[in-house]
């Protein structure tokens, strides 16, 4: 469990990036911090491994105030994955994955063996182990980044827009991979993104942030979609613009099993299972919603 207690952060140049922020992040869940650039979400994330220290307030991991912990030791037990993978360009993939275990004094053989397993875990072929990062595609580099984040088997995994720099198809792939991984591993994941679709897809819980890291709304994706607390949230998640308010388009002949859905502006937005022309009643969890909703926000990254 990670707990923010009344945390503020003012940078040297005077900007108040985080203003009295409190939040409890439960263990073994994926919590997504989502907001526009400059809302302080990355600052929040970097406070968890003491890359940034708060000006006031405190942060606790399993009820222990991290202000009293040695930053380097703290960072070594927390996985960190960032946007451009942050791999060391002069080291082979295997060495990148094994970096922290080797720093911690794990024997080379064991560290390498574990790194090889991690390549399997993140869906990379073992033959890539001896390549250099520059010889990999962007998506592969991100997978290596995730593998490195998992190398010391941390309880906590911090992810700072890890899929922000790859193309939409690869991103979708990586997102699915992360969902699968999380089902296997059950880490406490704190994920930062500005993409609300990504947030709804990955988050057990989503925290929508405004400037100064003010929490606009916090809840499960369905809670937020069903009940945006204010105009800001409604606009942010697209309800205000009618993108998520879908209705059946009666003008299109259905093939008997699917109905076409349109948004409030009349643009086709998805299909819904409707055997015999009747929409099946939703017993499905948000993650397996049968409505394949496609909005243009995915392309914003």
């Amino acid at each position: 469990m990670i707990e923010f207690r009344g945390v503020s952060k003012q940078f040297d140049d005077g900007t108040l990036a985080v203003d009295d922020f409190s939040l409890v992040i439960p263990s073994h869940k994926t919590v997504v911090l989502v907001g526009s650039s400059g809302c302080g979400k990355t600052t929040l994330l970097r406070m968890i491994n003491r890359m940034v220290d708060p000006t006031s307030g405190s942060i606790l991991i399993d009820d222990e105030d991290i202000a009293g912990l040695e930053p380097v030791k703290l960072r070594r037990r927390i996985g960190y994955v960032m946007q451009n993978s942050g791999l060391l360009p002069h080291r082979k993939v295997i060495d990148n994955v094994a970096t922290v275990p080797l720093l911690e004094g794990v024997p080379k053989r064991d560290a390498y063996a574990r790194a090889m397993e991690l390549l399997d875990t993140v869906g990379l072929d073992r033959s890539l182990a001896n390549r250099y990062p520059s010889q990999l595609s962007g998506g592969q580099q991100q997978r290596v980044g995730v593998a490195r984040g998992l190398a010391v088997d941390p309880n906590i995994l911090l992810m700072d827009e890890p899929f922000g720099a790859v193309d939409p198809i690869v991103r979708a792939d990586l997102q699915q991979e992360l969902i699968r991984l999380q089902q296997e591993l059950g880490k406490t994941i704190v994920f930062v993104t500005h993409d609300i679709d990504e947030a709804f897809l990955l988050g057990d819980e989503v925290v929508i942030l405004q400037v100064g890291a003010q929490i606009a709304q916090q809840g499960t994706p369905s809670e937020i979609l069903a009940n945006p607390t204010n105009e800001f949230v409604a606009n942010f998640i697209g309800v205000g613009r009618g993108k998520r308010r879908l209705s059946v388009d009666g003008s299109v002949e259905s093939n008997g099993n699917d109905l076409v859905l349109v948004d409030s502006a009349g643009h086709a937005a998805g299909v819904v299972d409707a055997p015999g022309g009747v929409i099946a009643n939703g017993d499905s969890s948000p993650k397996s919603r049968s409505i394949s909703n496609k909005t243009d926000q995915a392309g914003d990254a």
Partner: peptide, 10 residues
């Protein structure tokens, strides 16, 4: 970014 990442992983 490389340096930042090196710091972030400890």
């Amino acid at each position: 970014e490389t340096i930042d990442a090196a710091r972030a992983i400890g």
